[in-house]
Nucleic acid binder design. Structure first.
Length: 285
DNA sequence: TTCTGTGTTTACTTGCT
DNA sequence: AGCAAGTAAACACAGAA
């Protein structure tokens, strides 16, 4: 008999999960009708997870034989996934049609993919997700969400390339720079060069479909003419991006100019102020 | 005003090299 | 020892109720 068991001993038919998640995705794609293609492309398993890329790994909702291997004890408590938070977040965002996701969508992805997260009652993992988004410079904000809560998150272009190649690394340039700034009064750009990526990396602009989908009502007048190609090849490393729906100042952690600007702005303040200056705040002139 | 979700940061622990 | 990753917690902010 096909069924799923939670750690509370409650049985749910697999069909329940299938319908639940299918509905979730259907609502999403109905709201974004241009993504009917991906909807058809990503076939749902009876397990209730999207076919493409959603591996039936630890704790995911899957067939009974596999489940037995993925439970750590006789209470059928899901094992913690082997994938790191960073990997799962990156995977989720890369699978999104526009390669952008809001926090709640990322949560949903975690819960869809791993039973461990779906059944974790204390929700501490959500804190970890937020922590990872904030801490890792590979995740950048891409404008306010349409529901008024939070931002869209996307992956930095440079990191995106690495992720696509299966290289997931944590980047904490911000913190490292801040620590260095706290401990050194003299600022020597040359000595910081090891923190900087090649200057040829730019912020990528949102995909062409971005405006039609995510444009917010109060910024409809902001119609920008920079094409994706143009922006991706000519935009400076650090800019008030004209390509996001509400001109959200894109923060480029990979850009040397970010740190230069940030430091120049902040060096007039008390050094302790650095520890609470977020990149975006620093970027807002 | 309060509540809730979100975002940022720090401190600490654990495991690996 | 140093680093990466995970966890916990505090705090601030924005929007909704």
């Amino acid at each position: 008999m096909e069924r799923c068991m939670t750690k509370f001993g409650v049985f749910y038919p697999k069909r329940f999960w299938f319908e639940l998640f299918k509905l979730d995705f259907e609502i999403y794609y109905q709201q974004h009708s241009e993504y009917q293609l991906p909807m058809n492309k990503h076939q749902f398993h009876d397990s209730g997870i999207v076919d493409e890329g959603l591996s039936d790994e630890t704790g995911s909702i899957e067939d009974d034989s596999k489940q037995k291997e993925n439970y750590s004890d006789e209470n059928d408590t899901p094992k913690k996934p082997n994938q790191s938070y960073l990997e799962i977040i990156a995977e989720a965002i890369l699978k999104a049609p526009d390669r952008m996701m809001q926090l709640y969508e990322i949560y949903n992805y975690f819960q869809r993919k791993y039973r461990y997260f779906a059944e974790d009652v204390n929700k501490s993992w959500k804190n970890s997700v937020r922590h990872n988004l904030s801490l890792n410079d590979c995740f950048v904000k891409a404008g306010r969400g349409t529901n008024g809560k939070g931002h869209y998150w996307r992956i930095h272009e440079l990191a995106e390339r690495e992720f696509e190649q299966g290289r997931f690394r944590r980047r904490r340039y911000r913190q490292q720079m801040r620590q260095l700034q706290m401990h050194t009064q003299t600022y020597d750009t040359q000595s910081m060069s090891s923190f900087y990526p090649p200057t040829s990396y730019y912020m990528c602009s949102p995909p062409p479909s971005y405006h039609s989908i995510y444009q917010t009502p109060n910024n409809s007048s902001e119609n920008h003419s920079i094409s994706p190609l143009e922006s991706s090849t000519t935009m400076p490393n650090f800019c008030m991006t004209p390509t996001t729906p509400n001109s959200y100042p894109l923060y480029d952690p990979y850009s040397s100019s970010y740190y230069t600007t940030s430091y120049q702005q902040q060096q007039h303040h008390h050094p302790m102020a650095l520890s609470y200056a977020s990149p975006n705040e620093s970027a807002s002139f």
